[in-house]
């Protein structure tokens, strides 16, 4: 991309890159989700640096970082927090759970029971949790990065489609390249650099950034392009259920954040094309025939993009 990045965002990314090697794309996309007030679903195997990524992000924006390791026996109260009777005070005292943070890593979300999953997902959707009849407003910004292990199926509770819809983006971390991995080893010999990270953006600045992206202009032509893409996923022959209007909104918001990141106050079709696979693929339900053929949702989104013409002229009204 030719455009210069927004300086504040550039600083965050550079900060993350101090500890994460070769993961600029993931950092960018995570920031897109953070700026667009969305959440991220990371689908990857353990040990590729998901936690590191989230912690680095949290540190860079001086946000409260919390981590929840989901296990089959985790209870909703373990996520949201619990009221405990304090004999000294003679009353129940609320002990906030890990959800009461700014940036939360929900590790292996598919390993816990749906009940616990919904406790997190409710918080993600409503920005609040209700415990013992008391509604607790969550901190702002509130950003969840959930991970899902794609290879283990025994004893997992795959997220239902409706809940997958809550995530703005879904992406893979991927293994590092040869050189990158060697550099990782080099750094691991010394003290973990994560401890030395300094915040580069204050929380209030981040909130301001989240407000700013709403001003990014989305032209009618672009909106139409987004809607056409969404509609094409609905009519695709391999798709059982296409992207919902919520998906179209998510794509538009992600595009706004992405354009803002690159210092633009308007959205390009390039942004749409780049982000659409991340936004749409987890929202599609494929037909079983397509699954048998080994077609992935990402491929379908790419085919849809190839089929919808890019708007290059003003709409004729």
């Amino acid at each position: 991309m030719r455009n210069q990045m927004n300086p504040q965002i550039e600083r965050i990314i550079q900060n993350i890159e101090k500890v994460m090697i070769g993961k600029r794309t993931v950092a960018e996309l995570s920031l897109v989700a953070l700026l667009a007030n969305g959440h991220v679903l990371l689908e990857d195997v353990p040990g590729v640096g998901k936690t590191m990524m989230v912690r680095a992000l949290a540190k860079s924006v001086s946000a409260k970082f919390k981590r929840i390791q989901f296990t089959p026996d985790l209870l909703p109260s373990d996520v949201t927090g619990v009221s405990i009777y304090n004999p000294k005070e003679m009353e129940f005292q609320f002990k906030p759970g890990p959800i009461m943070g700014n940036i939360i890593l929900a590790d292996e979300i598919n390993r816990t029971s749906p009940k616990t999953q919904s406790a997190l997902l409710e918080g993600m959707e409503e920005s609040s949790v209700t415990i013992d009849g008391v509604t607790h407003i969550l901190d702002k910004p509130f950003f969840v990065m959930a991970t899902q292990n794609p290879i283990e199926y025994e004893g997992t509770y795959p997220l239902p489609e409706a809940q997958l819809d809550r995530f703005l983006l879904k992406m893979q971390m991927g293994y590092p390249e040869m050189d990158e991995e060697m550099e990782v080893l080099n750094r691991a010999q010394k003290t973990p650099p994560i401890e030395e990270l300094e915040p580069v953006v204050s929380l209030s600045e981040l909130k301001q950034l989240q407000l700013d992206i709403k001003d990014v202009y989305v032209d009618e032509t672009i909106k139409r392009y987004i809607v056409e893409l969404a509609q094409k996923t609905r009519t695709h022959s391999s798709v059982y259920l296409g992207a919902s209007p919520r998906g179209s909104i998510a794509l538009m918001k992600a595009c706004q954040a992405y354009a803002f990141m690159y210092n633009r106050d308007y959205v390009l079709p390039d942004d749409v094309q780049y982000l659409a696979p991340f936004v749409f693929s987890h929202r599609l339900i494929l037909k079983s025939e397509a699954k048998f053929e080994g077609i992935t949702a990402e491929e379908i989104v790419k085919r849809v993009i190839a089929r919808v013409p890019v708007p290059v002229q003003r709409l004729v009204k």
Partner: peptide, 10 residues
């Protein structure tokens, strides 16, 4: 030739 899905930038 510009493919129909090719953006102007590309």
């Amino acid at each position: 030739k510009r493919k129909s899905d090719q953006t102007l930038r590309d």
